[in-house]
């Protein structure tokens, strides 16, 4: 498999959210705005990158029977770092994502990539895999959050840090009432369902 392929797989062909259906909990729970999706995706990307590097480096010396607990210790360490980092530099985002930051520990994407990829490959391919998967995840969450925010709130928030807020009004809530349910839990399931349907539709149209 070419190096480029390792990187690009995560974006479309093996997209963690739309094909592997991994990490559904953060995908559905925090994508209430484009920026929340972006933040969650970036946090996961950082942890994934770190864990893939560390695990591919130490995989040879971990006894097979205790590999899962060992992976979790590595992942939990990285998650704690990201959690504290985010609490210090972006408290608003930290409080918006809330519980879902610590929950990255049990995110199936990270453990899945550690078990399925990093533990069997060298460091460089593991980095490419982590970047591809992490960016693919981030991109999906960003678009998912954007669509839900537009439909459910009428705005799209690209970036938000302290006083610097990049938020656009797509339509005025006075003229068109937003579909409130889209930023609630059912909206997440429905939007993701339509995303997957659209992806399969495009794939079918391409291969036909």
């Amino acid at each position: 498999m070419s190096k480029m392929r390792l990187f690009t797989d995560g974006f479309w062909r093996e997209n963690p959210s739309m094909v592997l259906l991994l990490g559904m909990c953060p995908t559905l729970a925090v994508t209430t705005s484009a920026f929340n999706g972006l933040g969650m995706g970036m946090a996961t990307l950082l942890v994934l990158l770190g864990s893939n590097i560390v695990i591919s480096a130490i995989a040879g010396i971990i006894p097979k029977k205790v590999r899962i607990p060992s992976y979790i210790v590595v992942i939990a360490t990285l998650v704690t770092m990201v959690d504290m980092f985010m609490a210090a530099y972006s408290p608003d985002l930290h409080s918006a994502l809330g519980l879902f930051i610590p929950l990255i520990v049990v995110n199936c994407i990270i453990l899945g990539r550690a078990e399925a990829f990093a533990s069997r490959n060298r460091i460089l391919p593991s980095i490419l895999d982590a970047l591809g998967m992490g960016l693919g995840f981030t991109l999906t969450l960003f678009v998912l959050g954007g669509v839900r925010e537009i439909l459910g709130n009428g705005t799209i928030t690209i970036f938000e840090y302290k006083d610097f807020i990049l938020r656009f009004l797509v339509f005025s809530p006075d003229a068109v009432s937003p579909i409130l349910v889209m930023i609630l839990a059912p909206g997440a399931f429905i939007t993701l369902g339509f995303f997957i349907a659209l992806k399969n539709y495009i794939d079918n149209a391409r291969s036909a």
Partner: peptide
């Protein structure tokens, strides 16, 4: 029910 949750006021 979708509409009731989506547009509670209307």
């Amino acid at each position: 029910v979708f509409l009731l949750i989506a547009f509670p006021k209307q």
